[in-house]
Amino acid sequence: MHFFSTLMVSFGSMFSAVWIVVANSWQQTPAGFHVVGEGINARAEITDFWAMVLNPSSVDRVLHVISGCWLAGAFLIISISAYYIIKNRHIRFAKSSIKIALFVALIASLFQLFTGHSSAVGVSKNQPAKLAAMEAVFDDQTNAQLYLFGWVNEEKQEVNFSIAIPGMLSYLIGFDTETKVTGLNSFKEEDRPPVNIVFQAYHLMVAIGMLLIVLSMFGVFFWIRGTLFKQKWLMWAFVFSVLLPQIANQVGWITAEVGRQPWIVYGLLRTSEGLSKAVSADQVWFSLILFTLIYIGLFILFVYLLNEKIKHGPEDVDAIPSEIGHPKS
């Protein structure tokens, strides 16, 4: 019964992730609709359900997001298990947990390479302005370079303090350094997203993604060698690694959403046109501030309680009563 419930929680989470990302993907690459009416009465009406659900970016993004969630889950387990191993508590539980989690982490982090790559190729086709912002491409060019890092000066249209691999961006999106990348200057000024935010968010995500692959590979490498639990430095790295997928997931969403600006539905409806007239700026401020305070408060509580729970540790496996199938009944 518990196992069944656990499976349902897992399937339910993934199922809802699918629909959330599908809805968001439709905002990125709308499909399967036609516009009826004009001016303020215009609205998109569905013409083809499956074209709408399987719009050009859905599949890539669903896989990318779900895999990102697997990473977040895997590294939470890795972190707690590593902590127990360092503290020499609940060893049997921690050792088997960390192995399962490392396995998931390795697969998910490598999988992210493919889904991330596939997403980026999709963005280059469907949302070229976003790709241009992600890599700070201002003029149309072939042999476009891929930045490892940098700081974008949007006014002067340059990237400072940067290191880049020449031709790599063109190569990645078309497997040919001669692939042309559309630059931001090919778009009207009012159709360009903010560049530096998208650039930084995107590069941070990619950097963390690479770091997660390295961490998982180290873990699996020492696991195969049989010395995993003796690598104190790696265990400590694992303890803090819980933050990495969280940050990567957040900045990934920032890349996707800020990169879509100034559109709320790409190419169709501007964010400024999507505003509700019945809601004043004051009301929005009120709710934003309120929810920021709530979430800060809840976050502190959450960390406090989670910390207590981690310190308390799992119930002793052998001590669980046999009537576990019917709790609370």
Binding site: A278, Q283, F286, S287, L290, F291, I294, L305, E308
Partner: peptide, 30 residues
């Protein structure tokens, strides 16, 4: 119309729903 028109009321409702859920979950933890 309703969600924009009742914006403040609905935000308060959400606020209450969050606190209620959190209260149920957190209460007996300590």
């Amino acid at each position: 119309t309703v969600f924009s028109g009742f914006y403040t009321a609905i935000m308060m409702l959400l606020f209450m729903l969050i606190f209620r859920a959190v209260a149920i979950e957190f209460r007996s933890k300590r």
